[in-house]
Design a protein around this nucleic acid. Structure first.
Lengths: 346, 346
DNA sequence: CTGAAAGCGCTTACAG
DNA sequence: CTGAAAGCGCTTACAG
């Protein structure tokens, strides 16, 4: 009662196993009549193709790895969904691992995926990942595509949003609303997204001839609690900001919360802008103005890029930068400003 | 420059490949000195174990399938995280597939996972999955554990929350708050969770000797839009409800939104209770009272159950029912009631 | 404690 | 268009 093999099918159909192999792999070399006999036998015996055996023989599997830093964050869950979706069209199937931002766990995962014969890998690297960590894959010539985050010094492909432009766009909008005192809240400088987003923040301020006191960029964990803490620090400054750009939407939620604790209202008293545009952003109160990143789309891009690299024997390093566009809702106070003849935002 | 094999190691270490195999599989039969020589060779040649080859030989892989109906819903993403987390301790690695509630896609996925040699599978079934669909796996004696949702008539293991008790608990709380006119909003009767949750809703009403007009249960898509629509229907009734229990938190968000559109406030004008307790529930305005389901914990349970079944050659069908506890926040109006001497909730 | 041999289920030239 | 043969990288009795 163990699983039927190609040999069982061959006997049943009265052909050799080579012919069966040709049929299951869709070769046009087989006479239609023979093919029909084989297919009937497959049906009768409930044969299931053994891809593991085929991979061994071909020295190449159709398994791909998907290594995500934090699946509990909807932003990265969306990335995962995009990757999986794009893979559906191909005949590749993904392993998944959630590293929880743990580089040691990530190293284990890389090894495990190599042992299981992954032919390529998409990774949203854990904070602290260095170029060396990726060498486990690259030195084995396994194509790697980084998603959402870059790894300094690593010469691998990447699919990332235009964090820098997005950060600048948010500030430009706040400038137009009349704000002149800003802070950037949350995240850590060892995160590539932090460096890029805060750089965009500074870019825009400099272009507006505003001086950026270095302390206006306040590092904190990219969590709600981090947002609460960072906002507290910002407000404690001698010249507190009237507008804050947050590292991501979760930090923004914390900032809004911290304002509420002080009897202040985001959008009315202090403008708050997030980053990512996670699904819940529009349901918050006030609805969150944020920089939208098409995470599903980036996931699809990453998967297609990986597939292309797997196919072309000699993958070359490429980078795709996705757009980051501002979605204006309530928390920046734009609507209020609008109705009060603009300019009163500070 | 192709990957080193057990034979390369054997040559390098001056032993047979059998001995190398013993070493890599951690057998205690090998003399420490020999082991050391082999390990040195492994290190030198950068050998990576080929699990695919081992699986073929052993006729058993350590790959497990994880089939999720909707990864974009944080509730199910948490389930996936729990599964993955519990698998980390074992030497099993998960394939993942997101079926997007599409039974046809799900059927493809089952097939693909069989072809790739999954030795067990955890599935949160797409709406519309029937017992027949699961036979692809069960008839091949591949252990299946259903998570979150059941499949009527299917004789397979399941890990689900106590939806019925949770639904009843929510209503009992609303009864204590003084409510007497209720509605259950959202979901469809072909979803097992809908049947169980709405049954708990009815249980509690009957125990309180209240008559449940059948129309008090309003089916609608389990989405925000569904919540908006269902609430509209409920309010249009001759005796509109003063309290609504929603199929899940997403529907509750829609209900709160629909109330706001009418100038009504959840908690003050109509009590709203959700189900699931997704992470954002506490950040909403008003903060959502909801029935908490430990989705990560259930995911871990499901994974451990599957592992156990894979190990014991003859898996028996088992069911685990996780608790569903009420988390009281603002949207049910409990705090308001508290401060107004109770009873004014209607 | 270690080695020689067979075989897991496929694919792939190579003949015919 | 079809078949016989070798081999992918392992494991597993079986000897010794």
């Amino acid at each position: 009662m163990s699983r039927a093999t190609i040999i069982d099918i061959a006997e049943r159909a009265g052909v050799s196993k080579s012919t069966v192999s040709l049929v299951v792999s869709g070769s046009p070399l087989v006479k239609p009549q023979t093919r029909a006999r084989v297919e009937a036998a497959i049906e009768e015996l409930g044969y299931v193709y053994n891809r593991g055996a085929a991979s061994l023989r071909k020295s190449r599997s159709n398994i791909v790895g998907m290594v995500i830093n934090d699946l509990l964050n909807p932003f990265f869950a969306e990335l995962a969904v995009g990757i999986e979706r794009a893979l559906q069209g191909s005949d590749h199937i993904p392993f998944i691992a959630n590293t929880s931002e743990n580089p040691a766990r990530q190293a284990q995962v890389f090894r495990s995926m190599r042992e299981h014969g992954a032919t390529g890998i998409i990774v949203c690297p854990a904070v602290g990942t260095d170029a060396e960590a990726l060498r486990e894959m690259t030195s084995a010539r396994i194509p790697v595509v980084l998603a959402m985050r870059r790894v300094p010094g690593a010469n691998v492909s990447a699919v990332v949003p235009d964090n820098r432009a997005g950060g600048a766009r948010a500030v430009e909008h706040l400038l137009r609303l009349g704000h002149r005192r800003f802070a950037f809240l949350g995240g850590f400088s060892r995160m590539s997204a932090f460096r890029e987003r805060s750089q965009g923040f500074k870019d825009a301020l400099e272009r507006a001839n505003l001086v950026v006191g270095t302390a206006a960029v306040i590092e904190a964990p990219p969590t709600k609690a981090g947002g609460v803490a960072a906002l507290g620090q910002a407000l404690a400054r001698s010249e507190p900001p009237t507008a804050v750009l947050c590292f991501n939407d979760i930090v923004a939620i914390g900032a809004v919360h911290a304002l509420a604790q002080r009897g202040l209202k985001a959008g009315a008293d202090v403008a708050v802008v997030g980053f990512d545009n996670i699904a819940e952003a529009e349901h918050l109160a006030p609805a969150l103005t944020t920089v939208a990143v098409d995470s599903i789309g980036l996931g699809e891009r990453a998967a297609r890029m990986l597939l292309r690299q797997i196919e072309s024997g000699a993958p070359r390093v490429e980078t795709y930068i996705g757009e980051a566009r501002l979605v204006v809702r309530e928390s920046c106070g734009a609507s209020r400003v609008h109705t009060t003849a603009l300019g009163g935002a500070a």
